[in-house]
Design a binder for these strands. Structure first.
Lengths: 348, 348
DNA sequence: CAGTGTAACGAAAACGTTTAAGATATGTCA
DNA sequence: TGACATATCTTAAACGTTTTCGTTACACTG
């Protein structure tokens, strides 16, 4: 590793001069700067981020806290897309990304681990690594550890959940659901069931929007039409779909918690020998890749994960760089309806 | 942030003593150690990783280089599972994870970025952040930048590609393909087509194993049965499937590059009005989640992503911690055949 | 009692930066 | 010409650790 002192020697100046030249301070002569830059290039100099972080207390490193409900972690379709986009935007601004997790090893037995690495909380971990800010994407925002992090004075941006003391980027679930209902209603459906996922604010918004959108159209769905299932899990949706199909007054369209759960429904429907969309219509949510390569393509609401990730990165970075002036706000990102072919036109 | 000097004052000892007590050196008295540990706990002391890294030149941080062919990055199903498992294992050993990427921002215009952040190569980035080792999972291992990293003296473990000067963890594609062929053959199929993906060593191994497994059974597949498509892309597989179905001597079973591509095939088959597995059989590869919730479940070869990620982490960490004695090796991880229901029994 | 060994701790340098404060030379102005 | 401002560079302290090398006190040995 070539250090400041190496290029200083080569240039015949002090390390301070080199340091200041590189950060373009105005008390260094222009031709000196030029020469230093040239030599740095030649020697392949790069600053040592640890030394730099230690001194200026800015690491240009962002933490990412990712705890999905089912431990799916990175493999979660929605979150991984958000993260990828977040990563790219952060990258473009010169930030690196480090995962944050509590260091509670199974046995506390990390033999070679750094000194005193008893389990840390998320916040402690973030401080230990000196990250400048943290992106929190997490199913259960009310864990004490998560709350501690969010309530700290570290810049934090949350995804799909809002607190009043930190910024958030949320997918517009209210609008998403109403778009879906509108589309389905316009195709003649009146008996629309909704199977929803785990209890989160996302789910609550979708349920509220479902009821409101129907109400606006003079529809009061029976209780049996609104059922609880599990995100990304086809089995509960499969079971409930069978029950819905067996109702005396069965729905003509079923909305699922997400595209994966929807596939459980598809299987139930096929099993009963019904065709989609001729005999019954279905709609998913998320618009994951798979939903658009199935036949028929799913009618679903694609959440704009790129935009969510990008805006989250921008917001977080702006908070890091302008701690005084950055505004705490809730950024709502609309999705887009993918028509697919799983919702049929109903005439009767 | 509470520092060493803070707990030193509180304990009435020097910082050196505290530092040594925490790393359990033998030249500190037992009761002193006990007291220091207690005070650290009370005050919530954690070391500053930057200072520590700067001094000891070990960051307890691992880099991850992820470049998929199609820029899917983290959203790549196979890699994201490997990474998740890698992360968990690293976490259990007290290591954090940071993404490595070249810092070439679109315009080189990261105004607030650290000093002199012109674009760095992967290696430079890794050195800049001081990571102890790097996991490389990447489609194109022959990019100069990737080669530079792999050829450096930084500990590196590669996934699904082997070089003789660094360790690798690879999925057993030879065995995987032969297991698949064996299963299909045993169910009576003799006309087995193989649509393969992009040209990588993984693909080459599968192709070779396909030919060899058939040869062992006295089968010499016609050239039209072995076709080139694209990983994770249903369209080419769709097109080729139609062509295969239209052959005079059409196959009774088609093996696809992966489960996603297989879905393209499924659509083609449905379009022709054939049933699976009654009229034609199909097999995927990977065993992704979606493949097991479709109806019929895909017959596919599940790659053991957890094991691959875990072994990669163990290997990398062992190389980091025992630079002298760690063995450079190629670790081969077998997959497991998932029977599914997409390969039927052929009698004639 | 002089010498030696050992246990327990501290002083200080070092890691590679940044930056406040100081130093030097040069130009400007009254 | 002396005072002062300005431009350019250097010195040195600081960031929070780790670790080498002392130092001190004490016990033991012959």
């Amino acid at each position: 590793m070539v250090r400041l002192v190496d290029v200083a020697k080569r240039c015949g100046v002090s390390v301070a001069t080199v340091s200041k030249a590189l950060s373009d301070k105005k008390d260094i002569g222009e031709e000196t700067k030029e020469k230093i830059r040239k030599v740095c290039e030649e020697m392949g100099y790069f600053p040592n981020s640890s030394a730099r972080t230690l001194k200026i207390k800015r690491s240009y490193n962002l933490g990412v806290l990712f705890v999905a409900e089912d431990d799916s972690g990175l493999t979660h379709d929605y979150f991984s897309h958000v993260l990828e986009s977040f990563r790219m935007e952060a990258e473009a601004s010169g930030y690196d990304i480090t995962f944050i997790y509590s260091g509670q090893s199974p046995d506390g037995e990390s033999l070679n681990a750094p000194v005193a690495l008893r389990s840390m909380s998320y916040l402690e971990r973030a401080e230990y690594r000196g990250v400048d800010g943290v992106l929190v994407a997490c199913a259960n925002y009310y864990q004490p550890e998560v709350m501690e992090l969010i309530s700290s004075n570290l810049p934090v941006v949350t995804i799909d959940h809002s607190f009043d003391h930190c910024s958030s980027v949320v997918s517009d679930n209210v609008r998403g659901m109403s778009d879906l209902i509108e589309f389905i209603y316009d195709r003649g459906h009146r008996k629309i069931a909704f199977i929803y996922g785990n209890n989160t604010s996302v789910t609550q918004n979708r349920i509220a929007s479902y009821y409101r959108s129907l109400e606006e159209r003079g529809i009061d769905p029976p209780d049996q039409y609104v059922r609880s299932a599990v995100y990304r899990n086809p089995k509960p949706s499969y079971d409930i779909t069978l029950e819905l199909l067996d109702l005396k007054n069965s729905p003509t369209c079923i909305i699922y918690p997400d595209d994966y759960a929807c596939i459980g429904g598809l299987n139930a429907i096929k099993e009963r020998g019904y065709r989609i969309p001729e005999d019954i219509s279905v709609a998913g949510y998320d618009g994951v890749y798979i939903s658009q390569i199935l036949e028929p393509r799913l009618t679903t609401l694609r959440q704009n994960t790129e935009e969510i990730g990008r805006k989250a990165a921008r917001k977080l970075i702006s908070q890091v760089e302008n701690p005084k002036t950055a505004i705490i706000e809730k950024i709502i990102v609309p999705g887009r309806l993918l028509e697919g072919g799983s919702v049929g036109i109903l005439r009767s």
